[in-house]
Design a protein around this nucleic acid. Structure first.
Lengths: 243, 243
DNA sequence: CGTGTCGTTGAGCGCTTTCAACCCTGGTGG
DNA sequence: CCACCAGGGTTGAAAGCGCTCAACGACACG
């Protein structure tokens, strides 16, 4: 985790370029930039440990971070994968609570940080910033609840179907493509599965012709049938008993 | 779901009495009260269906509500149990998104509702209210993440241990009591377990002397050992093979 | 005292995990 | 150009664990 000795002008420019800061008040950005830093974090290096206090608001400039809860088995339960232009740990910052998950870089990444004290100060003085944070945290809560729904599915086949259908561009789209934004290992961990099980389920769906997998590219060819897997507890991949 | 024909003065008084509205601006309460209603909802009756838009901010005056995701198996995955003086679905209200869970009364309950439009209006005009909502939603997100952590535990024994330790009053408290705030059925569903498994795990812990169960009262007698169950993947409840 | 709800206990099955080996792909260097 | 290597992904076999179904027990309520 090396800080980049960037001049403030550069930092401010980087911030202005990020979609995340779009339509923040320019004056606000100018106030925050002097307390912002940018740094590089190498693949597999930790950024925040579980239980630590978040001392800044972090925004990913490039790369990808993995938020996860470490399991006793040595495994991980991925809570979120944070990509370019996203922030995280906002709720911890707001409440000044310890971080409930670990944060590690999936790949070499650039991250921008805004000092917590300064940010809270700005928060108190800026209703529009507060409103923005309310929106962000609300969105994250709904996303998390959707993930909970996916993981709540009893069978692993249903979880995978649920996951695939989350990427449906429209409620009636029957065919569409998904570009996996992370290693299958991490996605499996986000679904509460092992990578082996995830792989098997994708294989099964492939054999049925419902999807087509080529590396990290998945083509869904029959979303309706996929949705039916989710609805029926029955697994149509196995012997069609009576159906 | 019967609306109570309460005079506005009564509604306002009820609101003022609720801890939830403590230190809201009196003027604010006065503005909202005319658009608030109070109603009774009977045990097992639905309040909001999954996918519906929340048309109001709801606050529980008495009783208990169950927020859950329906599973294809007919079961439920409880997301939260909302008791007196708590609100819910704030994030849906803020983003005007459909509700990701069902809401049903656990017991006969009194609920207060504030019209969504009016509430959003007030939200825009009142930075302090926005800040309050930000705190509430942030808290709910952290709570949800803690629940995710519990459910992420591989073995059911670990989940139960995790659940019990969530009620530890202090990090070093070795003995303490827990009063279950809901039916064991619902708590099990919140842990992602069946009530049978939940019962079995409590039974095992009881036989080991780590806890003592009397109805909905659980006395934890050795929190340290309980924490160790969580840390070690090994289940000390079974035959001590080799240990 | 009967009734209904909730909780407990028991037995068997199916699924996911675990552990293992193997494959595939991209990158590197001779 | 090919051999080699490392990381990620796939596939196979075996075993453990939680779910399901079913019956019983406990308790509150009318």
């Amino acid at each position: 985790m090396n800080f980049l000795p960037l001049p403030q002008a550069q930092i401010l420019e980087n911030m202005a370029r990020l979609a995340y800061f779009r339509d923040w008040h320019p004056a606000q950005l100018a106030r925050l930039a002097p307390h912002a830093r940018q740094f590089v974090i190498e693949k597999q290096q930790p950024l925040i440990r579980k239980g630590a206090h978040a001392d800044a608001l972090y925004v990913v400039v490039s790369g990808q971070l993995r938020l996860f809860i470490p399991l006793t088995s040595g495994g991980e339960r991925v809570v979120a994968l944070i990509g370019q232009g996203e922030s995280f740990a906002e709720s911890c910052l707001v409440l000044n609570e310890p971080c409930p998950f670990e944060v590690v870089a999936c790949k070499d990444s650039h991250v921008l940080s805004i000092d917590a004290l300064i940010f809270r100060q700005e928060l108190q003085q800026s209703p529009s910033l507060t409103e923005r944070m309310l929106r962000i945290v609300s969105t994250r809560l709904l996303t998390t609840l959707r993930d909970v729904e996916t993981c709540a599915q009893r069978s692993s086949m249903q979880r995978v179907a649920c996951f695939l259908l989350q990427h449906r561009p429209a409620p009636d789209a029957e065919v569409f493509e998904i570009k996996l934004s992370a290693r299958k290992l991490d996605i499996a961990a986000k679904l509460g599965l092992t990578q082996e099980t995830f792989s098997r389920m994708l294989g099964m769906l492939g054999k049925q012709g419902l999807i087509r997998v080529r590396g990290s590219l998945i083509q869904v060819r029959d979303a309706g049938q996929l949705a039916r897997i989710n609805a029926n507890a029955a697994d149509p991949g196995q012997t069609p008993l009576g159906q």
